[in-house]
C-alpha cells in the first residue's frame, strides 16, 4: 500500500503548485503512469479519492491516469521489446544487457483549475 504514501506526496506538490499559481480549486489532475512503475492504478485512485477530498484545494478533483506501456531496449542486438512480457532478458537474442526505455514513470503531467 505505498499508493497512500504516494498520494500524500502528490497532494503536497499539488498544493504548492496551486499556491504558486493562485488557484483556489483544482478540478483535474493528469498523471503519467508507467506499466512497471510499481504503482497500481486502482489502489492509487482509491487512495486519491479518500485523501483529495480532505484538501480544500482538491475536493472532488478527478485523477486522470494516462498509462504508459513499458519498453526495453537490448544493447546487444539493438531491438526493443515489451518489458512486461519478457522482463530483463531480450526475446530476440537472449542477452541480459538490456535497459528500460520507458514505463517507469509516475509523473504529474498537468492540472486544471481556477
Amino acid at each position: 500500500m505505498h499508493e497512500l504514501g504516494i498520494v500524500f506526496h502528490m497532494i503536497d506538490t499539488l498544493e504548492e503548485v496551486g499556491r504558486d499559481n493562485g488557484l483556489t480549486s483544482i478540478a483535474k489532475v493528469t498523471l503519467n503512469l508507467g506499466e512497471v512503475s510499481g504503482v497500481l492504478p486502482d489502489y492509487l485512485l482509491d487512495c486519491w479519492r479518500w485523501a483529495a477530498d480532505r484538501s480544500d484545494l482538491l475536493r472532488g478533483a478527478e485523477l486522470d491516469i494516462e498509462k504508459i506501456d513499458a519498453v526495453t531496449v537490448c544493447n546487444a542486438c539493438g531491438r526493443t521489446y515489451a518489458t512486461l512480457a519478457h522482463g530483463k532478458t531480450c526475446p530476440h537474442c537472449g542477452s541480459n544487457d538490456t535497459v528500460l526505455l520507458r514505463g517507469n514513470e509516475a509523473e504529474i503531467d498537468t492540472i486544471e483549475g481556477w
Partner: peptide, 18 residues
Amino acid sequence: MDRIKVIEVKEDVLANND
C-alpha cells in the same frame, strides 16, 4: 466561475520527498 487554467507540472509524484 473564473476561467479554467491548465498548468503543466511535469514533476515526479515523489519529487517533494526526493
